[in-house]
Amino acid sequence: MSEISHRKARSIIAKTLAKGREMNLKPLSVVVLDAGGHVKAFEREDGAAPGRFDIARGKAFGAVMLGMGGQAQMARAEQQAYFMAAVNGVYDGKVVPVPGGILVLDKKDAVIGAVGVTGDSSDNDQLAGMAGIEAAGLTGQP
């Protein structure tokens, strides 16, 4: 099984933050988790609220634990709120089912981790995160 390296995680973060600056977004916070939901790397830009770590982690955690990106989680929550409520019960409220939580896939389409981005609108968070993942030579599934 492939694994997301610390070097690759740092690259994703750097490229995500660069995309956020290019898009003139509010200060971002970005976390990269491995396939087991453990933090590989995190960075919070100057000016980002201190609570953003938990939001970024919740976006990424939901993606990796459920095997679906935040965009798909949000659609599921809108269709079956009881399901996402149950999931959040199972995971002690750690899932944030909105865009900005992105599965990271290797060249064989195996899940190797997830990225969580927060700080601007969820849609903009997702755009910046996808750009960071793609610039690092990986595939993202929002």
Rank of each mutant, 00 (worst) to 15 (best):
residue 136 A to L: 01
residue 114 A to C: 03
residue 6 H to A: 10
residue 132 G to T: 05
residue 59 K to Q: 04
residue 41 A to Y: 10
residue 38 H to Y: 06
residue 62 G to N: 05
residue 58 G to R: 03
residue 49 A to I: 01
residue 125 D to W: 03
residue 99 P to A: 15
residue 43 E to G: 12
residue 71 Q to C: 07
residue 9 A to R: 10
residue 10 R to I: 00
residue 16 T to G: 10
residue 126 Q to M: 09
residue 46 D to Y: 09
residue 60 A to Y: 02
residue 24 N to T: 15
residue 24 N to H: 15
residue 25 L to D: 13
residue 128 A to K: 00
residue 92 D to V: 03
residue 114 A to T: 02
residue 100 G to A: 10
residue 41 A to P: 04
residue 136 A to G: 00
residue 43 E to V: 12
residue 56 A to S: 13
residue 102 I to W: 00
residue 141 Q to G: 05
residue 1 M to K: 08
residue 31 V to G: 13
residue 77 A to Y: 04
residue 72 A to E: 14
residue 18 A to N: 15
residue 113 G to L: 15
residue 39 V to R: 12
residue 92 D to N: 08
residue 59 K to H: 01
residue 47 G to P: 02
residue 53 F to C: 03
residue 97 P to V: 04
residue 16 T to D: 10
residue 105 L to S: 13
residue 106 D to R: 15
residue 88 N to C: 02
residue 91 Y to M: 04
residue 26 K to N: 00
residue 64 V to H: 03
residue 90 V to F: 06
residue 114 A to Q: 05
residue 43 E to W: 11
residue 46 D to W: 08
residue 140 G to H: 07
residue 61 F to E: 06
residue 66 L to E: 05
residue 14 A to Q: 07
residue 25 L to H: 09
residue 123 D to V: 11
residue 25 L to C: 14
residue 94 K to W: 00
residue 5 S to A: 07
residue 123 D to G: 06
residue 52 R to K: 10
residue 37 G to W: 01
residue 131 A to Y: 09
residue 38 H to G: 01
residue 3 E to Y: 12
residue 88 N to G: 00
residue 104 V to A: 02
residue 90 V to K: 03
residue 131 A to N: 04
residue 5 S to W: 02
residue 38 H to M: 07
residue 86 A to E: 07
residue 28 L to M: 13
residue 66 L to R: 01
residue 106 D to L: 15
residue 31 V to Q: 14
residue 85 A to N: 12
residue 38 H to S: 11
residue 18 A to C: 15
residue 109 D to E: 10
residue 124 N to I: 07
residue 103 L to P: 12
residue 125 D to V: 05
residue 87 V to G: 08
residue 52 R to Y: 13
residue 32 V to G: 11
residue 67 G to T: 08
residue 22 E to K: 13
residue 46 D to A: 07
residue 75 A to G: 00
residue 2 S to V: 09
residue 59 K to G: 08
residue 110 A to Y: 12
residue 9 A to C: 11
residue 61 F to N: 09
residue 138 L to C: 11
residue 120 D to S: 06
residue 30 V to K: 02
residue 64 V to Q: 03
residue 114 A to Y: 05
residue 48 A to G: 06
residue 92 D to K: 10
residue 54 D to E: 14
residue 83 F to I: 15
residue 127 L to N: 15
residue 63 A to R: 10
residue 13 I to T: 02
residue 2 S to C: 08
